[in-house]
């Protein structure tokens, strides 16, 4: 937990932040609208005596009063899927439309992939890629259980992803939910900070830059790329955006999101970032009683 002390200069109400990071997370699921309406999923939970609470900002995100949402009929039928509240943010920000071509560059284990498919009414194409074959089997299990049919799964290094298997050359939208130091998941997994090191952050940031650049290249002019992490480290967030802004033809765009957030930071550890990274959003655990998250929306140059 001492690791997080480095963020004291960034976080007002730092004590509240530290306290929130020590509390366990609420149990949250997303209703899979490919297989059930929110009303039917709620009714199934009612019949089993599992309590639920709506989230104001979404029709499909529910908090449950059980620690094992997987042991419910609604889950067996693929009507609900365990997904942390902030993890549901980037697909909503990407906002894919039915019929579009969407790339999920780091897709496993698939909670965001299946959410993208549901937002598209399971129409169009989601290319769900991951470089880790083991994690791909978890992704496959989830797309199958949730009954998703518009998703193609690939196993490539996203940094030099090739569109060769396909008869199109660019995506309409891309989700770049990169591997990261996962500091923001400390409430779910308290040991996540045990292996923390600045060296790891520096090395994973290099990978993140490569993936984001490839994503911008593979998305059509005027198309949308959403970049997200579950970490607080500016090295993996604003610094990666700053790098993409200087190397690729793209810009950050403002977006609204109905959860409390703070803007991206323009200064960290002696570094300065492009002013526009303020358009990104930082979600802190003590603001919405969630994990920590970072999300930015980019538009590819025309």
């Amino acid at each position: 937990m001492e690791t997080l002390e480095r963020y004291e200069p960034l976080v007002a109400e730092f004590d509240a932040f530290r306290e929130a990071c020590r509390r366990p997370l609420p149990s949250v699921v997303r209703v899979n609208t490919v297989k059930a309406t929110p009303d039917r999923a709620k009714r199934a939970l009612d019949e089993e005596g599992v309590g639920w609470t709506d989230r104001e900002w979404s029709d499909t995100v529910l908090e449950l009063d059980t620690d094992s949402p997987g042991s419910t009929w609604a889950s067996f039928h693929g009507w609900i899927n365990g997904q942390e509240e902030v993890s549901a943010i980037p697909a909503e920000v990407l906002a894919p439309e039915p019929g579009e071509r969407v790339w999920d560059a780091c897709a496993a284990p698939g909670s965001k992939t299946t959410q993208l498919a549901a937002l598209m009414d399971d129409e169009g194409l989601v290319v769900a890629n991951d470089n880790n074959l083991g994690r791909l089997s978890a992704l496959r299990f989830n797309t199958e259980r949730l009954g998703i049919t518009n998703t193609v799964v690939t196993n490539q290094d996203a940094r030099n992803f090739s569109l060769k298997p396909f008869d199109f050359r660019e995506f309409d939208r891309t989700l770049v939910d990169v591997p990261c130091s996962c500091e923001g998941t400390v409430r779910k997994n308290p040991t996540t900070l045990d292996d923390w090191s600045l060296d790891h952050i520096r090395s994973v940031a290099g990978v993140q830059k490569g993936i984001l650049r490839r994503a911008i290249q593979a998305t059509k002019p005027g198309g949308t790329v959403v970049y997200s992490t579950c970490t607080f480290a500016p090295e993996e967030n604003e610094a990666v955006l700053d790098h993409a802004l200087s190397e690729e033809d793209c810009r950050l765009v403002e977006f609204d999101f109905p959860l409390d957030s703070r803007p991206g930071v323009t200064e960290w550890d002696g570094e300065e970032y492009d002013e526009s990274v303020r358009k990104a959003k930082r979600f802190y655990p003590h603001h919405n009683d969630t994990g920590g998250f970072f999300c930015a929306k980019l538009e590819v140059g025309e």
Binding site: E123, G124, R140, G147, I148, T149, V152, P165
Partner: peptide, 19 residues
């Protein structure tokens, strides 16, 4: 396997829609 929509055939990928 069943896929919503179309891709080119043949295609070498890990999965295509639903078994």
């Amino acid at each position: 396997w069943i896929l919503r929509g179309e891709v080119t055939s043949p295609i070498r990928v890990e999965a295509l829609g639903l078994t």
